[in-house]
């Protein structure tokens, strides 16, 4: 029964916004086990890198896993040029621990950029568990806002922000979060997006003493606890993002260390991307 269906085939692809792609991949075993908050690691080709992408949705019946990714470097660029019918060299998951979903009351979920796609399954699960979900989603500008419809379908209230004010509220999601916290009795907050945004969001929630869960996008290799490249300090202890996370209590994360570690391969990443652009 397991034989022959691990095809890793791309069966659907759509450009949600300039440089942001949605892709459905046939991976029945992953789809069967996937839960909100988990991720996969994929490789485009034999010489490729292993990159982690959050599971944005999953359909056990069709055996498919949905991802939403943004082109930021070589691997995501290569992935964005793959077509329906193409096969990924490697696709493994679901990795990490699922989000802890419970009935808390009013909760806020905050997504920035492609983080919106990652926060969607969490918002949906929270909604299904009977919470009142307030969603705050943001992007640089109007045409980069993604999955607004989907978010509306699982939220009691949706706040959209754009950095330039071209749509929704002008400003960052973190500002919108501050306003929500002032007005509502929020019991728990989830934030997924660029590391710096998650850090700031934690600064915003700290005075309100609201538990704030972040999903860390650490650099990874194996994703199974074998290499330790994804380590992060939480409450003074070393944790592996891939097996202990990716979700952690944002107020306990050593953000400066985390931000530094994200930059470890900046020079090499730029070189790889440059060479890739020159070739294609």
């Amino acid at each position: 029964m397991i034989g022959g269906i691990l095809t890793n085939r791309i069966i659907y692809k759509k450009e949600l916004a300039p440089g942001i792609f949605l892709m459905d991949v046939e991976a029945p075993l992953v789809a069967e086990k996937a839960r909100a908050g988990q991720f996969v690691i994929l490789m485009t080709g034999e010489k490729g890198e292993r990159i982690p992408i959050t599971i944005a949705d999953y359909d056990p019946k069709r055996g498919t896993v949905r991802m939403v990714f943004q082109v930021v470097g070589k691997t995501t660029a290569e992935l964005s040029t793959m077509k329906v019918g193409d096969t990924l060299y490697s696709f493994v998951g679901p990795l990490g621990r699922p989000s802890k979903i419970d009935k808390y009351g009013t909760v806020a979920v905050v997504g920035g950029g492609t983080g919106v796609a990652s926060i969607y399954p969490i918002a949906r699960a929270l909604n299904e568990a009977g919470n009142r979900v307030i969603s705050i989603i943001g992007a640089k500008t109007r045409n980069l806002v993604i999955m607004e419809e989907e978010m509306r379908s699982v939220s009691a209230k949706v706040v959209v922000t754009t950095d330039d004010g071209s749509y929704g509220k002008r400003g960052f999601v973190t500002e919108a979060l501050r306003e929500v916290l002032k007005e509502e009795d929020v019991k728990k907050v989830w934030v997924v997006g660029p590391a710096i945004m998650m850090k700031v969001a934690c600064d915003v929630t700290r005075p309100y003493n609201v538990e704030t869960i972040v999903s860390l996008n650490a650099i990874m290799v194996d994703g199974t606890g074998m290499c330790g490249t994804c380590r992060v300090t939480v409450s003074g202890k070393t944790k592996f993002t891939c097996v202990d996370g990716p979700e952690f209590d944002g107020h306990s994360v050593d953000w400066d260390e985390f931000l530094n570690r994200l930059n470890r391969y900046r020079a090499q990443e730029q070189l790889a991307f440059e060479l890739h652009k020159r070739r294609s």
Binding site: M226, C227, T229, R231, R261
Partner: peptide
């Protein structure tokens, strides 16, 4: 956990 502290596994796996 400074940037350029590797585990042997990370170094060799890469």
């Amino acid at each position: 956990n400074l940037n350029d502290v590797y585990s042997a596994n990370e170094f060799l796996t890469r």
